Simulated scan of single mutants.
Amino acid sequence: MMHLNINQIKEIIPHRHPFLLIDYIEDYQPGTFAIGYKCVTYREEFFAGHFPKEPVMPGVLTVEALAQVGAVAILSVEENKGKTAYFGGINKCKFKGKIVPGDKVRLETRIIRQKGPVGIGEAVASVDGKTVVAAELTFMIG
């Protein structure tokens, strides 16, 4: 297993607080997959407005966290170091559950196709073994 702490993640992807949505990478293989985690706390800035009486992590931020994990896999390939992975599309996205304060979200993105600077990843976010978001993410390396 290849682990990455927050400082090592910041060496690979350009995201920074408050938009860096992964806390650590448990395992990854450059160009193939990455598995990361987001430890959700009540102090997350988005909970102030989403929703004050029932805090729920916005689904679009969960998709973004999955994309960031995928970016770790893609941008850790030697020829992609120093580049940025941009969203090209989101397909087959399903929201199957809520993410709330106290959840430890497992984020896994597997790169299933790549041709030149464009690729597709299968992404799944889960909490306690239950899928909360699944999507197919298209990326472009710039």
Rank of each mutant, 00 (worst) to 15 (best):
M2H: 14
M2P: 15
M2L: 14
M2Y: 14
I6W: 09
N7Q: 15
N7P: 10
I9L: 04
E11A: 13
I13H: 02
H15E: 07
H17I: 09
P18H: 00
F19T: 05
I22D: 06
E26K: 10
E26L: 12
E26S: 12
D27M: 04
D27E: 03
D27C: 06
Y28V: 01
Y28N: 04
Y28L: 05
Q29L: 12
G31E: 05
F33Q: 06
F33Y: 00
A34I: 01
A34H: 02
G36K: 03
Y37G: 08
T41W: 06
Y42I: 15
Y42T: 13
R43G: 14
R43N: 15
R43P: 09
E44A: 07
F46A: 07
F47M: 08
A48H: 14
A48L: 14
A48F: 13
G49W: 14
H50N: 11
F51N: 05
F51A: 08
F51G: 09
K53V: 15
K53I: 15
P55C: 00
V56K: 08
M57F: 05
L61Y: 06
T62S: 06
V63P: 02
V63E: 01
E64C: 08
A65W: 00
L66I: 10
L66N: 01
A67Y: 01
Q68S: 04
Q68I: 10
V69R: 02
V69L: 07
G70E: 05
V72S: 06
V77M: 10
E78P: 07
E79C: 11
N80S: 09
T84Q: 14
I90S: 04
N91S: 12
C93M: 14
F95I: 00
K96R: 11
G97E: 06
K98F: 10
I99P: 06
D103K: 00
K104P: 14
E108F: 08
E108L: 11
R110H: 13
I112P: 01
R113P: 06
Q114L: 11
K115E: 11
P117S: 13
G119F: 06
I120R: 08
I120G: 03
G121D: 00
A123K: 06
A125E: 02
S126M: 05
V127G: 00
D128E: 12
T131W: 07
V132A: 04
V133E: 02
V133R: 03
A134E: 15
A134W: 12
T138Y: 10
T138C: 09
M140E: 09
I141H: 00
I141S: 05
G142E: 11
G142A: 11
